[in-house]
């Protein structure tokens, strides 16, 4: 593994590290808002993967210049960056924002109902409710469900 290899795949290293950080936050943090933040980092890593793979060394923005009559002037010597991943990621960003806002809205409602945004506290409340239900309606799964 040469230095060239490591530097040459820089975007992938960033992608992997960022993605893992994001996933780690989602899994390990108890605060619901922080989980959403983790999810955002996770998604941002994917956006980076897409955008960086569209990049072609020496490529320029894929905008065809037009002359005064509006005719497209195509110069075969100019290398263009692949625009499709950008377009895709534009969509994915919209999806990501929708997810984030919905998640935050849910957190607001959860806070209203549970008076907490800490996962453990919420789980404890839910477990207590389930326990009360089991007492009232007969045991499920030996009282563990």
């Amino acid at each position: 593994m040469t230095l060239d290899y490591i530097l040459g795949h820089m975007n992938y290293w960033f992608f992997v590290i960022l993605m893992m950080i994001g996933l780690y936050i989602v899994i390990s943090y108890g605060n619901l808002v922080k989980k959403i933040v983790g999810l955002n980092i996770f998604q941002a890593a994917v956006f980076m993967l897409y955008i960086s793979m569209g990049k072609i060394t020496g490529g320029t923005a894929p905008i065809f210049p037009t002359d005064l009559q509006g005719k497209i002037q195509i110069d075969p010597n100019i290398v263009y960056t692949n625009p499709v991943p950008h377009v895709l990621i534009l969509t994915a960003i919209v999806v990501g924002i929708a997810t984030t806002s919905l998640g935050l809205a849910l957190i607001v409602r959860i806070r209203e109902q549970y008076d907490s945004i800490e996962e453990q506290e919420i789980l404890d409340i839910d477990a207590a409710t389930a326990h009360a239900e089991n007492l009232a309606h007969g045991q499920a799964m030996g009282g563990r469900a």
Binding site: V26, L39, F42, T99, L106, I110, Q113, Y114
Partner: peptide, 17 residues
């Protein structure tokens, strides 16, 4: 049942992943 909210939240996290 307020647990619908946490269920939806869990689903959102898992579904998005």
């Amino acid at each position: 049942d307020k647990r619908a909210l946490t269920a939806a939240y869990d689903y959102l996290i898992m579904g998005t992943i």
